[in-house]
Amino acid sequence: MNFRDRMLDEYKEILKTYIHDQTEQALYMSQKFSRKSIEYKISPEEMISLHKTSIMDLEPDLPESLLLSLDILLEVMMSYGLAYREHQSLRTIQRELINEIEVAASMQQTLLGTQIPRISSLDIGAISVPAKQMSGDYYHFVSHENGAISVAIADIIGKGIPAALCMSMIKYSMDSMPDDSQNPGDVLERLNRVVEQNVDPTMFITMFSGLYHPDNHTFYYSSAGHEPGFFYHAETGTFEELQAKGLLLGVDKKAKYNEYERKVEVGDVILLMSDGVTECRTEEGFLEVDTLIAYIKKYIHLSAQDIADKVYKELEYLQDFQLRDDFTLIILKRTA
């Protein structure tokens, strides 16, 4: 007995049961049957043909007109069958695309990977979580020969794959900068020229660039339209915004970036973040700066990485575990 005959028998049995005494059982069986036919890729028009054969067998005295009507139904169902097969093939393509994006996302991780530098006087922590598969946030550390550390945090406006590609460009121009131009203002001016020339005119980048000198424990910084960070004074237990003015990268190639500096004492903490942190939306509206600071303060005594992880957990909880924007938080804490 071949497959079609077996299906035919099964269908005929269901039909017979139902015609005989309209039980729930027969309806249930037909639902099961329908799932099985989908699994075995039986098209809608084949089902009609199966139905016609069965009913002719079971009720040979049916009026001719009813049987003829089934031919029309069969013709009409053909398009449904085609649409269904198209849907199936699109699903296959979609699965392939998802795989490709996964590969790209993991490649992004590898390409853009950055090592958190280790220096004796500074404890550094970082967390970056994309809202979608590919992040538009980016951070990067560079250790210089003289012991200084550069840190950059950027948000590529325009999300997804184009942003990710753009980020690789930023990373390589940062890595290829000569060791003698570490000043945050210079870094931004150079990158601004790169971005202005090379990037799609509707794509922009905000970036905060900093340099920590362990010799004099001073943090130098400049901002290109980036969300200001916070500075925690251990002595007074107070927070202050790291105000810095500067235009987004990629808008005006002649833009200049002012440099600011801050003396860092033992226990002081520098917090850098993306706008996914400050623009975090909760059920009651936007996250207020005071609320954010309260969370940071709650964990400020911990190690840098723990502060970053714990604050992320708190905000993730506030947003019901649904990140709307990429989230990046970098913590620099002077320990000695």
């Binding site: 325009g158 999300k159 922009f204 808008v251």
Partner: peptide, 16 residues
Amino acid sequence: TYMDSTGLGVFVGLFK
């Protein structure tokens, strides 16, 4: 009521 950095990007584009 709400605008994120993508929205900002649109205004920069229009401005340019």
